Simulated scan of single mutants.
Amino acid sequence: MPNLTGRDFTAPAPGRRLVGDITCLPTPEGWLYPVTVIDLHNREVIGHAMADHMRAELARDALSFAVERGLISGNAVFHADRDTPPGCSAPALAGHCIRTSVGRTGSCFDNAVAESFFATLKTEIGTTVRDTRDDARRGVFAYLGYYNHDRLHSTLDYRTPQEVRVGCRRGLALVA
């Protein structure tokens, strides 16, 4: 599969260029695997899923969540590294009119935005081992709300992802 982003982590409008990744969080019950879909236009996490496994449906669930929310445009590009579960393969995405892009093996720079998101998540929620998977899930879910609605991003001129998305939609409405 080709790399359609070429390390260009910008997008001209919401829902057109997306990146995704998976990480793991330890608990005494076992691992929790969060998967995210991030819109490169405003750095918003527009889709996510979490489970105790890394099967293909986990990645499909994260993308389906973003599609159901109406946050992905037709002919969008979804970029992931080669470690992302296979649910993000070309056949799985074709039904949503999403083209697949994959980085090189062993190059975190090809998926830097998604990698950076999980590094920030782990820094900001702490590396404490949560008592249960449900505790870890609640921690990730709370962080996603904070990240999208309250956390200021330097790449967005110190606005939140939600502010940028809402501002873009208002701008489109004013033109119409």
Results as ranks from 00 to 15, higher is better:
Phe118Met: 06
Thr128Lys: 09
Met54Glu: 12
Val67Met: 04
Phe109Arg: 08
Pro28Leu: 08
Ala59Gln: 07
Leu93Lys: 02
Arg69Gly: 08
Asn42Tyr: 02
Arg69Phe: 14
Val175Ser: 09
Thr128Ile: 03
Pro86Cys: 07
Gly139Thr: 10
Asp150Ala: 11
Glu115Arg: 13
Pro12Glu: 13
Ala94Ile: 02
Ala90Ile: 13
Arg16Ser: 13
His41Gln: 00
His48Trp: 15
Leu25Ala: 09
Ser107Asn: 15
Ala66Pro: 06
Arg165Tyr: 01
Thr84Val: 15
His153Cys: 07
Ala94Tyr: 01
Thr160Cys: 06
Thr100Glu: 10
Gly70Ile: 05
Thr132Asp: 04
Val175Gly: 00
Arg133Gly: 06
His41Leu: 01
His41Ala: 10
Ser101Glu: 10
Asn75Ala: 14
Asn42Asp: 15
Pro34Leu: 10
Gly30Leu: 04
Asp150Tyr: 10
Thr100Asp: 00
Val164Glu: 04
Val102Phe: 11
Ile22Cys: 05
Ile98Thr: 10
Ile98Pro: 01
Cys108Tyr: 01
Tyr158Glu: 06
Phe65Tyr: 09
Glu44Thr: 13
Thr100Ser: 14
Gly139Ala: 15
Asp150Leu: 11
Gln162Leu: 13
Thr36Cys: 10
Arg133His: 14
Asn3Phe: 12
Thr128Asn: 02
Leu63Gly: 04
Phe141Tyr: 11
Val37Glu: 01
Tyr143Val: 01
Ala114Asn: 02
Arg170Pro: 02
Gly6Glu: 11
Ala13Met: 01
Ala62His: 02
Leu152Ala: 10
Phe78Gln: 08
Ala11Ser: 15
Met50Asn: 05
Asp150Thr: 07
His96Pro: 00
Phe109Asp: 03
Arg16Thr: 15
Asp150Ser: 14
Ser64Val: 08
Ser116Ala: 13
Ala136Asn: 05
Gly103His: 06
His96Asn: 09
Pro12Trp: 00
Leu144Met: 07
Arg170Ala: 13
Phe117Leu: 04
Val129Ala: 08
Arg43Phe: 01
Thr36Gln: 02
Arg17Val: 04
His149Lys: 01
Ala92Gln: 12
Gly6Ile: 13
His96Asp: 06
Val19Asp: 00
Glu29Leu: 07
Arg43Thr: 02
Glu115Gln: 06
Leu156Thr: 05
Ser89Tyr: 02
Ala56Val: 07
Gly30Cys: 11
Pro34Cys: 08
Leu71Pro: 12
Gly167Ile: 13
Asp61Gln: 13
